[in-house]
Design a protein around this nucleic acid. Sequence first.
DNA 1: CTACATTGTTGTCAATGACTACTTCTCGGC
DNA 2: GCCGAGAAGTAGTCATTGACAACAATGTAG
Lengths: 215, 215
Amino acid sequence: MVMTDQPYHHGKLREALLERAMETIEQAGVDGLSLRQLARDLNVSHGAPAKHFRDKQALIDALALAGFELMNQRILAAAHAGDGLRQRFASVANAYVDFAVSHPALLTVMYSTKHHPGSSTELRNIGEQGIHVARALIAEAQDRGDLAPGDTETLAMVCFVSLHGAALLAAGKQLDGNSVEDVVAATTDTLWAGMAAGVPAAQLSQTPLGGPRVL
Amino acid sequence: MVMTDQPYHHGKLREALLERAMETIEQAGVDGLSLRQLARDLNVSHGAPAKHFRDKQALIDALALAGFELMNQRILAAAHAGDGLRQRFASVANAYVDFAVSHPALLTVMYSTKHHPGSSTELRNIGEQGIHVARALIAEAQDRGDLAPGDTETLAMVCFVSLHGAALLAAGKQLDGNSVEDVVAATTDTLWAGMAAGVPAAQLSQTPLGGPRVL
DNA sequence: CTACATTGTTGTCAATGACTACTTCTCGGC
DNA sequence: GCCGAGAAGTAGTCATTGACAACAATGTAG
């Protein structure tokens, strides 16, 4: 009679797979993720994961979805933390970059999966929450006169794009000598100052896309 | 006697492998890259590539190196194109993003390989040229009084980080509805305006890194 | 012409992702 | 209480892949 042996049914295999997969990709990257190794880690046959995730990509999609949900939680909470709009803006930025530094491989998976052909609509849309938060903050600051008038959608995209770069480079430890805190602070400072000053018409970029062709 | 048959020695297998690998990753991503498939494409035995690239990672490293060299050419040329500093700044930004959009998979390979453990010193340093160019432009603009005084190294990093984000998102077609040109123009406008205005001391970001912990 | 390094060929092995057929457990209706 | 359907897990198989080793063909220096 089996006693302390593993029960035939794992019971929470799906969650266990996701949890273990998170750990694995942070240690070995996405390429280090193997369904068979995952099964071995959980003392389960190599075919068991297929019952919960059709194939490897399905598991990765689920990982990405969970990542976005966690990240959005952090960003939303940060959007209400701080005295003024300026601080709440910085708070959101720090929350984003913090998440990236804490889960670098997950972030990579999230954004490489997001536009993958065949990705779910849910996955494709859930990544936009951060931009919505930024736009709301910017719009409110414009109303109060803290920032110069301007297209909030474009400005929000500029902020998102810039902080996304900071997040990715910070996650990849590619900020050379600079500390993450300094880079994020300087970036938010520069962006906010730029939005506060507005863009003088004479300064508008007029260089055609691409510039000179070298090759 | 063999006539039109393939000669025993390919002759330029290394270059052919790199060239074909470039095409492959842009079409199928890095995961779609297979040494054996590469060999088949070039009508060569499946073991031949090993003579030129110790393993798959070695080939990818070589791809990344070639990518950085090409990108640096474009950026350097763009740094001298345009009337004033403001336009040359935009020209560099456009050159960077243009390169990213033209070779999205290659860019991913370049930056994912750059900090790979065991990457060559050459590879680790060659990616910094862009920042040097940006810093030189900023320093010159500060001297002329076009930009407010400030730490050029940090400001250059801010610009690089921001444009890197724009480049990656543009390459991944993740700018939602916005056009690449608009986003890059708005980003350079905002950054330049922010650097021109400088950062009022009272506005300095004082939010501690991380903000509130949610989980 | 001969020794040798380079380049390419062939064969092989372990690991992997995906598929199929089978077994074991759970649960709801009767 | 049983029983049948379906969920969950097991076991076996196949093609592909990366890596490696042994061997053959080529070019070249002495």
